[in-house]
Amino acid sequence: MPLLEVKKMTHYFGGLRAVNDYSLKIDAGEVRGLIGPNGAGKTTIFNLITGIYTPTEGNVILDGESTIGLRPHQVAARGLGRTFQELRLWRHMSVLEHVMMARYSKLSYGLIGAFLGTSKRLKEEEESRQIAMKMLDMLEIKHLAGDSIANLPYGAQRRVEMARALATEPKVLFLDEPTVGMTPEELNQMMDIFRRVRDELGLAIFLIEHRLKMVMELCDRIQTLVFGEVIAEGVPEEIQNNPKVIEAYLGKEAVT
């Protein structure tokens, strides 16, 4: 049984068919790439699977259970973590607070615990802090824990976002163009981090990316999306040499 399975998902925005008959199977530890030209519907697919939109047709099954109809916070608590194309951080909250916030659904202390500082609360908070620090360490930004987000350079902010997504303990991590705006050097560092995250936490990664170098090096399998439809799927070499993919990216001239 795959960890995450999407079955024949179709979605309409009004009369516009944004996604057509999309299927996907991801196993634990796998890195899957989703490529395609702008406007192909990649982010829409992320939004559909993570519960921001409900698909018109089709099913999403995580760990054997359908997530259709669940609210985004419920899908997140079930184990789908995510980052966005643009940075979405909370100014004026510290780096550590960002990552601890991600532990919200794992904290079960009640109102009385909150005000009296019961041992349950202290224990939960301490555990939370430790996991948060572990994630920061994994992303090599542990030393920034106490800093305010607004003061960090862009690359570090990206890492905070990753650490925050990881702290929710996702089974599948959805990354929407995680290296956009990064220098080639930062890109290489991020790729190392993705591999480490996959190996140490054993999670699956589902990646939208425009930099083909990264997709080809990192992904086990790749899907190519054009106008909401998967036109090619396979291992990196297959995708690289697929005439349909080359056509979608470079135009028909390049093929003939």
Binding site: T50, R71, P72, H73, Q74, A76, A77, G81, R82, F84, R88, L89, W90, R91, H92, M93, E97, M100, M101, A102, Y104, S105, K106, L107, Y109, A114, R164, A165, T168
Partner: peptide, 23 residues
């Protein structure tokens, strides 16, 4: 508290708050 933290987060960016498992 965790609720207070969620409130502060919501005040700055609403969209990612549910991704933390917060309703």
């Amino acid at each position: 508290t965790k609720w207070g933290m969620a409130m502060r987060a919501m005040a700055y960016d609403y969209l990612v708050v549910p991704l933390m498992g917060v309703s």
